[in-house]
Simulated scan of single mutants.
Amino acid sequence: MPTGVALRDVREQLFDAAERVLLRAGPHALTSRAVTTEAGVAKGVLHRHFADFDAFLAEFVLDRVGRMDRGTATLHESAGSGTVVDNLTEALTALYASASVAIVKLVTVRDGLTERLRHTWPAGVPVVTEAISAVADYLSRERHLGRIAATVDVDTLATILIGTTHMIYVHRGETPPDAEAVRRVVLMAVPEQK
């Protein structure tokens, strides 16, 4: 590898490389060597920017959760427009088209990463808890607008939607389900709209 070459946005370059390795080969293949090779940089580059590999992975997960936050803004803005079923189907499909399932697997198989994340993410699994919160917030807005029944427990419904959609994606392996499969889940879970 060339030395003395300035790397622009090295953290983002490493995070993008980690995501590609994770999606292509799974969490067990995610090593510092695999990430730096994928990024096309010397191994020392990663260790100059992060205390250790678990610190890198923790920041990678939090970065991807941050990206998800930006994506859920669209769901929040959709409250009151379109249909609740269409809005949720689109949001859930987009969420799980990302690296979400792979990141959940990564967090659950790496004890050091899980422990590291506990310092900044005290409860639940990043991605899953953030997704539940975003969907619950959206459902709460729709309930306030009268587009779903006032009696709907939005936290429970959000957990059902995220959990069921997650299971659909996990069980499909490399072939993700189509949006229609997600739509069927939403139709079954969301109470009939007024």
Rank of each mutant, 00 (worst) to 15 (best):
F56G: 04
Q13T: 13
S78E: 13
L92N: 00
A131P: 08
P126I: 08
D16M: 03
V107N: 07
R147Q: 06
A123V: 14
V109S: 12
V152M: 00
K105E: 11
S140F: 04
E77F: 04
A94L: 00
G26R: 13
T175N: 03
T31K: 05
Q13D: 02
A17C: 06
V85F: 03
A181R: 12
A29T: 08
R48G: 00
R184C: 02
G4M: 08
P191I: 13
T108G: 01
H166Y: 15
I160H: 08
V101M: 07
S133Q: 15
A99T: 04
P126S: 10
H171C: 13
D63W: 10
S81C: 02
V185A: 07
H171W: 12
V154E: 15
M1N: 01
L117C: 08
G26P: 07
A99E: 09
A25G: 11
V128Y: 12
G4A: 08
I148F: 03
R33G: 04
V84Y: 11
R118M: 05
T156K: 12
E19P: 06
L30A: 01
V104Q: 02
T164W: 08
T175E: 06
D69V: 05
V185W: 03
T120F: 12
L46E: 10
E174R: 09
L22F: 13
S32V: 01
T83Q: 01
P2I: 15
M167A: 14
F50E: 05
D137A: 14
L7V: 11
E180Q: 08
G66A: 09
K194N: 09
D137R: 15
L117N: 08
A18C: 10
N87I: 01
D16F: 05
L106M: 10
T165N: 07
A131V: 06
A91H: 08
T108Q: 11
Q13K: 12
D111P: 04
L22W: 15
T156L: 13
A17N: 09
T89K: 04
S140P: 02
T93A: 03
F50C: 06
A181I: 10
V10T: 12
M1V: 03
